[in-house]
């Protein structure tokens, strides 16, 4: 089934067309990568899908229902979670709190039940705590739960951000450059980790990534952006041999390969 459908989406800032006529279909269980040079409009495409920006033109639907123009929190609630390119954790809060917060959206108790710790809230809080501890264990952060998020080393912060996104119970996970700043060993681990969470949480993953090693290793399909325009789409083999892609990357290719 088509989980996510992006139709003919353009995002224009003043005179700058950051994304132009973007189309995407994401199926259950797929991993699709979005690549392209710096400033190509990749993050903007994420922002449009997650409701941070409303597209200037075009439509986005999720499970057949139109979601264009909805707020980010509404879209997350429907089942699309994300991470950020420039990690946006709740820095001053503990690692555990970061994950707990991401459970709040499904809380049924109202603020009075929560304040006066009524039975329903106590039950929910207990569930949330168990689930969060579980998630932290899965990403290997169980020992750091009491630490301040900003005190974690970079790689762990990235993992925490993924754990936090998973806590919202998404069907689709959008990852914005998850391997940025990682060494080859960490990158390998991450590739494995992404595959693992895809299977375990039955996710579809749409990710922006510059590390070709990651992209080529796990993507079912790849989209290539250049100046906001989709210049190619296909499986890793097709993309590697696509003339336009090679041209767009010429000169910068070495940095990313």
């Amino acid at each position: 089934m088509k989980l996510l459908k992006v139709e003919n989406v353009s995002m224009i800032f003043g005179g700058l067309t950051a994304v132009k006529e973007f189309n995407l279909e994401l199926n259950q269980g797929e991993i699709v990568a979005l690549i392209g040079p710096n400033g190509a409009g990749k993050t903007t495409a994420f922002n449009v899908i997650t409701g941070v920006y409303t597209p200037t033109i075009g439509h986005i639907s999720y499970k057949g229902k139109e979601i264009t123009g909805q707020r980010p929190d509404q879209i997350t609630k429907l089942g699309i979670a994300r991470t950020f390119q420039n990690i946006r954790l709740f820095k001053e809060l503990s690692v555990l709190d970061n994950v707990l917060i991401a459970n709040h959206l499904h809380l049924k108790s109202n603020f009075l039940e929560a304040t006066f710790k009524l039975p329903r809230y106590r039950r929910e809080e207990k569930e949330i705590l168990e689930k969060s501890l579980n998630l932290l264990e899965k990403v290997g952060l169980q020992d750091a739960q009491g630490e301040k998020a900003s005190s974690l080393p970079y790689g762990k912060q990235r993992r925490l951000e993924i754990a936090r996104a998973l806590a919202t119970n998404p069907a689709i996970l959008l990852l914005d450059e998850p391997a940025a700043g990682m060494n080859p060993k960490e990158t390998d681990d991450l590739t494995e980790f992404i595959r693992q969470i895809r299977d375990e949480f039955q996710l579809s993953i749409f990710m922006i990534e510059h590390h070709m090693q990651v992209v080529m290793g796990i993507s079912d399909r790849i989209c290539v952006f250049d100046y906001g325009v989709t210049i190619a789409e296909g499986n890793p083999y097709e993309i590697q041999n696509n003339q336009k892609v090679i041209e767009a990357y010429l000169g910068v290719a070495e940095d990313y390969a």
Binding site: K91, I101, L105
Partner: peptide
Amino acid sequence: KAIREDEIAAESMGI
């Protein structure tokens, strides 16, 4: 507190 720390991240976490 999440809103205080980072509104955009908080909203993206469904708040």
